[in-house]
Design a protein around this nucleic acid. Sequence first.
DNA 1: ATCGAAATCTGAAACGTTTAAAAAACTTAT
DNA 2: ATAAGTTTTTTAAACGTTTCAGATTTCGAT
Lengths: 333, 333
Amino acid sequence: MHDVARLAGVSIATVSSVINEKNGVSPKRTASVKDAMSKLDYHPDLVARSLKLGHTKVIGMIVPDVTNQYYPEVMRGVEDEARVHGYQLMLCNSNENPDQEQHLLSMLFSQRVDGVLLASSDSTAVYDRQIRRRFPIVFIDRLPSGCTERAVITNNVQAAYDATRHLISLGHKRIAIIAGNILLSTGSDRVAGYRQAMQEAHLPIREEYFRHGDFTLESGIQCGLELMNLKNPPTAIFSCNNKMTLGLMRSLTELNISCPKKVSVVSFDDFEWAANFTPQLTTVSQQTYEIGKSAMQMLLRIINSEKNKTQNKEDILMLQAKLLVRDSTTRAK
Amino acid sequence: MHDVARLAGVSIATVSSVINEKNGVSPKRTASVKDAMSKLDYHPDLVARSLKLGHTKVIGMIVPDVTNQYYPEVMRGVEDEARVHGYQLMLCNSNENPDQEQHLLSMLFSQRVDGVLLASSDSTAVYDRQIRRRFPIVFIDRLPSGCTERAVITNNVQAAYDATRHLISLGHKRIAIIAGNILLSTGSDRVAGYRQAMQEAHLPIREEYFRHGDFTLESGIQCGLELMNLKNPPTAIFSCNNKMTLGLMRSLTELNISCPKKVSVVSFDDFEWAANFTPQLTTVSQQTYEIGKSAMQMLLRIINSEKNKTQNKEDILMLQAKLLVRDSTTRAK
DNA sequence: ATCGAAATCTGAAACGTTTAAAAAACTTAT
DNA sequence: ATAAGTTTTTTAAACGTTTCAGATTTCGAT
């Protein structure tokens, strides 16, 4: 910057003014400064700027597993919205590990990010003053227990209800569920929706049809095998996320059980492969891109209201999911 | 920091020393400083530190599409290696858009990242002095034209050769290819491997069996339809990446053509769904995690050698891929 | 007690920006 | 030509660290 100033024959304050497009600098100077900047291939140092200004224009995003297609999709929404407002994204992976998550949170604080988007793997953590005071957080996908604001999630209860209703309407009575980690809202809410639909239809929820997975492929295989090896196996299965569905399908091929002929499957989370392989999966499709976009918008609103010291209350935004009926579900015989 | 110093009754220099675990500060002081730090919930300001030190301990990573499973997988490798050495990751999406890529590159420079991992969507760009001088770059996945060093990629020629050989060894003669963007090394190398195998087996490469896609799902559908609608359709298809394979499979279901009965398919890129649906895909599996890990290690070596001003020449590291034979390929009749 | 050396601590400058206040350079009206 | 007003430019202080040279304390030996 000093070099630019020297070359253009002005002070660094003037250079700063033209960089920030302040008015009050003559066209002549503006031109020569711009000229000098490109001659020297000068790019402003954002870390110095951040230090002075007290904000970094980067926001952190913590997800439990980048490798789960779901998160990159919401990231796209976040990124597009962020770019429009000049923010950069710092993506981090917590590996479903609460310790790692805490560690990342304090790292992001040290990096002085302007805000955080968090898909928490730790429902029990107290995201209170301690953390709250540091920077604005918007929760995505998963709602920590007791959280009543600043979040954007899918209406999981409704979505699971719809999925289960669909199976019921096809005449299924023996409907199993492969649940995820019920310590997470995504886990328990989907179970709640399933329960609700079953009860409404006066169908019993048999203990042996209620399987606890943990959102991983392995648990999907395990639960699938257990379920289909029962003396009285279910005629339909509701699997609570994409990875477990993958495992479930694997177990079905292993057991040489045909879907949907022998058993109908409805899955949470829709992805490209779900529609292009056999069987084409009936799934509950979340508005992933929208979740990311809305969450980023909410975060931006919070950041701005903090800047202007204006009051601002952001509630929980719940997006609807959509049931996509394809070939993996069929009428009960 | 001033507050910490005041509370502990020492100077900020001393605080700095204990933070950085310099020797030469008495146990007594150390204790009281640490005490004050936790009392005040003090976390060092990394942006100030970066300004002073001239490095940020963050490295940038630019990929063409986060939504392609492949990249999150290499990101895992990068991240694990980075964490060990205290580096943070800034992940960016270029959307396969060269302009966007240039823009990100200069943004990352302004952010003063210590290095960049780049899966470039722009083979023609001159990554020369201009960019090179700014920060160390290691190329991943895709080799820009003329690049002869500082890259870690898969041996795509060999991999494609293996895949094609596999089809040939099953007795196929009419073997089609759905190529990707041949302006990218991943596109042209895979074609080269295919050609090599075909020529070695004295099989003609028929113009109509040579299809140009662009690594997207849509192009996969398109090419699949064209191929199978030929009066003399191929008995085997080599598809050059995961997304196009998805499209290809879709086209087969649309046309009601059974794989592998009517046509064998071998795909590039192995993922969870490839092994768990019908047909279970025969794929070429890249060492995604290893690519990320090795690239990060290489970048670290470059960064360190620049710091010590020692000479250092990093060549292109080529990792082998592995052919996983599953159910989508079968003997020609 | 005093000295010298070793150990420990501190003051102040620097990193590259932004910005308010002061200064300088132009206008225009007299 | 000058005063007053307006526009443009510059000076200098700050942002939160690190670090080096110098200052202070501690301690063992005399």
